[in-house]
Design a protein around this nucleic acid. Structure first.
Lengths: 111, 111
DNA sequence: CCAGTTCATAACCAACTTGTTATATAACTA
DNA sequence: TAGTTATATAACAAGTTGGTTATGAACTGG
């Protein structure tokens, strides 16, 4: 994954409206109007958020007559998730090493 | 986790310099100067990035004389990770349902 | 005490974000 | 064909971001 794609993905996830949109889309494909309904926000604002999500690869859109149905694209999310997972593992390894070090010190000080 | 905290965490992760800082910190605690060294960027710029990471709860800082050593704070990362994991699970469930639906349709069409 | 080191802060700037309203485009409906 | 619905685009304002340079504050070592 290019750094720029991770940039876009995390930036897209940083907005609560966009996370709410993803939450709605997790329940299934839907239209822009239906997505916009629960938000106290104009339709163009939602269209913009969708564009951000699309550029980040988090959603894709089809064509159904005059509708542009949106659906979640799992791949980008998976990649962000992977990045976080890697670091979580690294830190856990660090903590494990720290634990080992502390145990070692304790043994030396209280033989 | 309050939404604002997730906002700050994902926003902090959206910058490649900050992700690189986290990568360095994953190897162990270090000072601001040492962190700034590999970047073609002024020291104040790094201090600003650190402030963003700190506000997001991703790093914390100690005091060692005139140094302000930085270390990773695993909790916020874990929370972001959890958020992503939840959605991954939701989507996988969706895909499973979709798979079941497709199998069902296939059975009907080719009895 | 002085000089150097580490780090933070302030003031500034250009670029980007997030919302708005108004308008355009495209497809359906009668 | 005319009107309505779904969505996109443009132009704009206000706020935020990410960098800069200059400076200040806190500590250290001779």
């Amino acid at each position: 994954m290019q750094p720029s794609r991770l940039d876009a993905t995390f930036a897209a996830l940083a907005d609560p409206t966009r996370r709410a949109i993803l939450a709605r889309l997790a329940l299934g494909e839907t239209t822009v109007m239906e997505l916009a309904e629960p938000f106290e926000m104009s339709q163009p604002a939602i269209s913009k958020h969708l564009k951000v999500l699309e550029r980040a690869g988090l959603v894709s859109r089809g064509r159904d007559g005059q509708r542009r149905p949106c659906r979640i694209e799992a791949k980008a999310l998976g990649e962000a998730n992977e990045w976080l997972e890697n670091y979580r593992r690294l830190w856990e390894a660090n903590f494990a090493r720290l634990d080992a070090l502390l145990a070692e010190l304790q043994k030396k000080n209280n033989p």
